[in-house]
């Protein structure tokens, strides 16, 4: 049996099921990160002293990572726009760039983590580092998850374009929504952890 409303919109909602599904999922993600942000505020306001993020973390590296992630959001939305223009080759180019930007982000994060671990700064070292590893670690898992879906849509999943281009375009749009959310979370993580 075919899954209903993957291409055409439901009359009552005006949306495809995939679109509603991804937004409900993102709503749950807001609460997940929200709970961690609330914990961060609670721990920080309850601590007698709190270090300045920039005194422990590498601000220039994180700034580069912010620029990388924002760039990846633009290439992601351009990948979707390419499909809307029926330019599959351009889609491949932009989607490939999005995946590459994700890889650059992870590589920079790897250097950041290994530096801290090398000098003995573990999650157990302080509350600040515990929060830092938890929030950035969870965010990094989201980057990896988003990259996996994007890689599938760039590679084997792209076969759908030949048989059902509208369905494939919808899939790319939904994957893009998740990717932009990951970017959005980082936009808040960057100043709260690194600069304040």
């Amino acid at each position: 049996m075919d899954i209903p409303y993957i291409v055409e919109s439901r009359r009552d909602t005006g949306l495809t099921n995939g679109k509603i599904g991804i937004w409900l999922f993102l709503a749950s993600e807001v609460m997940l990160f929200g709970a961690l942000f609330a914990s961060y505020i609670l721990i920080r306001t309850g601590a007698p002293t709190w270090p300045l993020g920039s005194s422990i973390l590498d601000v220039p590296l994180a700034t580069v990572n912010t620029i990388v992630l924002i760039s990846s959001s633009v290439t992601m939305v351009m990948a979707w726009a390419s499909l809307m223009r029926r330019r599959f080759d351009t889609f491949r180019l932009y989607m490939g760039a999005t995946i590459l930007f994700g890889l650059v982000f992870l590589t920079i994060k790897y250097f950041e983590y290994s530096h801290h671990l090398h000098i003995g700064e573990y999650p157990s070292t302080s509350n600040f580092l515990a929060i830092y590893y938890t929030l950035t670690g969870l965010h990094m898992l989201h980057v990896i998850g988003g990259m996996a879906v994007n890689a599938y849509l760039w590679g084997p999943g792209a076969k759908l374009w030949k048989t059902n281009p509208v369905w494939f375009t919808n899939r790319v749009e939904n994957s893009g929504l998740f990717w932009h959310f990951v970017d959005l979370v980082w936009i808040f993580l960057f100043p709260t952890l690194y600069l304040l």
Binding site: W23, F37, T45
Partner: peptide
């Protein structure tokens, strides 16, 4: 579409509660 905006409005409201919790319980 309005349905998605409604879902997000509800999410924002609950997110606001989450953010308020540390303030309400602190000291």
């Amino acid at each position: 579409k309005k349905l998605i905006l409604a879902v997000l409005l509800l999410t924002v409201a609950f997110f606001g509660v989450l953010m308020a919790l540390p303030v309400l319980t602190h000291g």
